[in-house]
Simulated scan of single mutants.
Amino acid sequence: MSARLALASIALGTSGLSTALVSWCAKPYVTTLRRFRPDGSGTAEELEMTTLSLTLQPRITKVYDPSFLIETRRPLAKWELAEKIALTPIRTHAVGTNLHPADGQEETVAETADANGNVMGRWIVKWGENGVGTCHQVGHVIRYFNVHEELLQ
Rank of each mutant, 00 (worst) to 15 (best):
N118L: 10
S41T: 11
T112E: 04
K84I: 08
Q105N: 07
C25S: 09
G104F: 06
K27L: 12
L33N: 04
M1V: 10
R122I: 01
L76W: 13
L69W: 04
A102L: 07
A82L: 05
C25T: 09
L69D: 00
E150R: 12
Q57F: 08
E107H: 10
G128D: 07
P75E: 09
L21T: 14
L151E: 06
S67F: 14
R35P: 03
T51R: 01
T72F: 03
T61M: 00
P66E: 03
E80M: 08
G133Q: 15
A44P: 08
E83Q: 10
A115P: 06
D39P: 10
G42P: 00
E149Y: 15
Q153F: 14
M49F: 04
T92H: 07
E45F: 12
V138S: 11
S53L: 06
P75H: 04
T97G: 04
I85C: 15
F68T: 04
E129V: 08
E107N: 14
I142H: 00
M1F: 15
L54I: 14
P89Q: 11
P38F: 00
C135G: 09
L7K: 14
L47H: 02
L33P: 04
T88C: 10
D114E: 08
P38I: 03
V22H: 09
L52P: 00
A110T: 04
P101I: 03
N98W: 11
L151Q: 06
Y144P: 01
L99S: 07
G121S: 01
W79T: 00
G139H: 02
E80V: 03
G16D: 05
Y144F: 02
I85V: 09
A115N: 07
H100G: 04
Q153D: 08
T19K: 15
R91E: 10
Q57E: 14
W127R: 03
A115Y: 08
E111S: 02
F68L: 08
T43E: 12
G40V: 12
P89E: 07
I85H: 15
Q153N: 15
G121I: 03
R4K: 12
L47G: 00
S23W: 07
S41E: 14
N116V: 12
L52Y: 02
L47K: 04
Y29H: 15
N116D: 15
A6M: 11
T19N: 14
T55P: 06
W79S: 02
V125P: 05
A11F: 14
L99T: 05
T50D: 02
F68W: 05
T50E: 03
V125T: 10
R91A: 10
L99R: 12
E46T: 15
N146D: 15
A115W: 03
S9E: 05
S2M: 11
A115Q: 10
Y144D: 03
H148K: 14
T92K: 13
G13R: 11
M120K: 00
R37P: 02
Q105L: 14
S18N: 07
E149N: 15
T32M: 02
V119E: 05
S41H: 12
H93S: 06
S67N: 11
L56R: 13
R37K: 06
I70K: 14
T51I: 05
A6R: 14
E149M: 13
S15H: 13
T72G: 04
F36C: 06
R74D: 05
A6I: 09
T14V: 15
E71Y: 13
T31K: 11
G121D: 03
E150N: 13
P58E: 01
